[in-house]
Design a protein around this nucleic acid. Structure first.
Length: 278
DNA sequence: CCCGGAACCTGAAGGC
DNA sequence: TGCCTTCAGGTTCCGG
């Protein structure tokens, strides 16, 4: 599941390769993935446009075009991007392809998506999408004080609030579990019940967990691959995420799995205390 | 505004 | 072996 560290890795890998190139063609095999505008409009307007920059906002990947427009992609759960040279196609890389972008001199960017939930749109202003998101957790402007203030009027479980993209952008199921573990906070705690000390720990844990995952090029627990096809390695370093039935790396207590808002949630019942008291 | 649940999707995994 | 059900989770939409 691509979250902030995975999309950041994709951005870092793509940038040196595609910056300055033009979209020479686009083929859509699942037109419903185009949102905001129509598939026909995107196919008409994108070819010929030059890629000035590749950026990330939350879990969105953004191709900033010289025209001022932006192509905005979201990989959702099973989407991935693969760079390849035309002609060296393997049958494996042809699986689940929903779109192919031509990038000139035989280079292609494939959008692959087993469950077809990924999206793309061509917008005149990237803020049409990025503007609805909460703060970037790795920005200097995201301070412990900002986090505490934003938590103060939310009483939903802290796990659910961390996964809310309008609250903070880029955190999903895996990294919410990891951050709560390192903050020693139970995932079911009401968000507004965290003490100042716990909020500071959570702020620090969010940054550490995300930065460490970026250093590891993300976590390939599902379909996530880097644009060159390589896997990330962060999944091997998880403390609780997707480790149900295994023991806590800190205290050896079995890691538990519970549903929180219908999302599989992993935590250590000893390190992360109780759902109610603080 | 806040909260919880359904819908969108389909391969994988588990039960019988 | 094979059919059937359930699960996976990011986002959007809807109702309370």
């Amino acid at each position: 599941m691509p979250e902030l560290p995975e999309v950041e890795t994709i951005k870092n890998d793509l940038r040196p390769v595609v910056r300055g190139r033009r979209f020479t063609s686009v083929s859509l095999f699942w037109p419903r993935m185009v949102i905001q505008n129509s598939a026909e409009e995107l196919c008409q307007r994108l070819p010929g446009q030059m890629i000035e920059e590749v950026a990330r906002r939350g879990k969105y990947l953004i191709f900033r075009l010289a025209s001022g427009e932006s192509l905005v992609l979201h990989l959702r759960m099973t989407g991935s991007l693969l760079l390849r040279n035309r002609g060296v196609a393997s049958s494996e890389s042809n699986l689940y392809v929903t779109a192919i972008f031509g990038l000139g001199s035989g280079l292609e960017l494939l959008f692959r998506d087993r469950r077809k939930l990924g999206t793309m749109s061509l917008v005149t202003d990237e803020r049409e999408i990025a503007g609805k998101l909460g703060p970037e957790p790795l920005d200097a402007s995201f301070t412990p004080e900002i986090l505490r203030e934003r938590l103060s009027n939310r009483k939903a479980p802290i796990k659910a609030v961390l996964c809310d993209q309008k609250f903070v952008a880029g955190i999903g199921n895996m990294y919410a579990d990891e951050a709560l573990f390192f903050a020693n906070v139970h995932p079911l705690r009401p968000a507004n019940s965290l003490s100042e000390e716990e909020t500071k720990r959570l702020h620090k844990a969010i940054r550490q967990v995300l930065n460490k995952a970026i250093d590891s090029a993300g976590a390939s627990i599902s379909d996530y691959r880097r644009p060159g096809g390589e896997r990330g390695s962060q999944q091997y370093a998880f403390y609780v995420a997707h480790r149900g039935g295994q023991t806590c790396k800190v205290c050896a207590t079995p890691v538990e799995r519970i549903p929180v808002r219908n999302r599989g949630t992993y935590f250590c019942p000893r390190c992360q205390g109780a759902a109610t008291c603080s």
